[in-house]
Write a protein that binds this DNA or RNA. Structure first.
Lengths: 117, 117
DNA sequence: TAAATAGTTGAACAATCGTTCAACTATATT
DNA sequence: AATATAGTTGAACGATTGTTCAACTATTTA
């Protein structure tokens, strides 16, 4: 497939494109990256993650803190769990969630740096 | 509004919730954060940003590299522009895009660290 | 064992998103 | 001036998303 059939352009800078092509990751890596960042792309989920930086909390705590239903929180926690961003422990009727590792805090802090400039 | 009316829970851990409440940011900050991360939450946009880590490129270059139409690329570049993640310069018919600052690379690298474990 | 509470789940809904398409602007070339 | 190319734009489309609702499981308490 020529460049022309792809983008209808005749002035593609081949050296820059070829260089970039070599440094590109596999398709799966970009999908994994975007799937990860999708978890930070919703205010509710960011609030949950930010709240859990302070201490572990059960679903009720988060629902109370964020003024949302347990169901809504639980759905989001499931997504965060699937991406290994939070872990949990059961104690009686309660399920206590906490951050899986400190990458979460690092990612949030980096975002805060960007928006505060 | 009581905890009960919010989440129908009676076992909210008040001290943990109150402590978290104090450390929470303003609603706007969470919206801004999630809007920022939304830019990294799509494979096409991440590819564009990652490619621009190598060198500046025009719309044709990116379209050729990612095997997409100029229109699709242009729409995504507009979104990245609005969030100040890329900057551009015009030269004749071409518009050359590049990363606005190195936060972008830092954010992508941090994501890669997380998925490689 | 029955009732109450914490949490999860799947379907449904509106809202948002990403790409396509066609039409457009702007610059360069003849 | 006419043509060609680079890039942008808005509407439209299907696909994905976040919350709600109702029904469910599991644990605790009476």
């Amino acid at each position: 497939m020529t460049d022309e059939t792809v983008c209808q352009c005749e002035t593609v800078h081949e050296s820059a494109v070829n260089q970039a092509k070599e440094s590109m990751l596999a398709e799966d890596d970009y999908v994994a990256l975007s799937t990860l960042y999708k978890m930070f792309a919703d205010p509710t989920r960011i609030k949950v993650l930010h709240a859990l930086e302070q201490s572990e909390m059960c679903v009720c705590d988060l629902a109370s803190l964020l003024v949302m239903t347990k169901s809504a929180i639980s759905h989001q926690l499931k997504a965060l769990r699937l991406l290994d961003l939070v872990k949990f422990r059961k104690e009686g009727q309660n399920v206590y969630y906490s951050l899986a590792d400190d990458h979460v805090k690092q990612i949030i802090d980096m975002g805060l740096e960007h928006i505060n400039e």
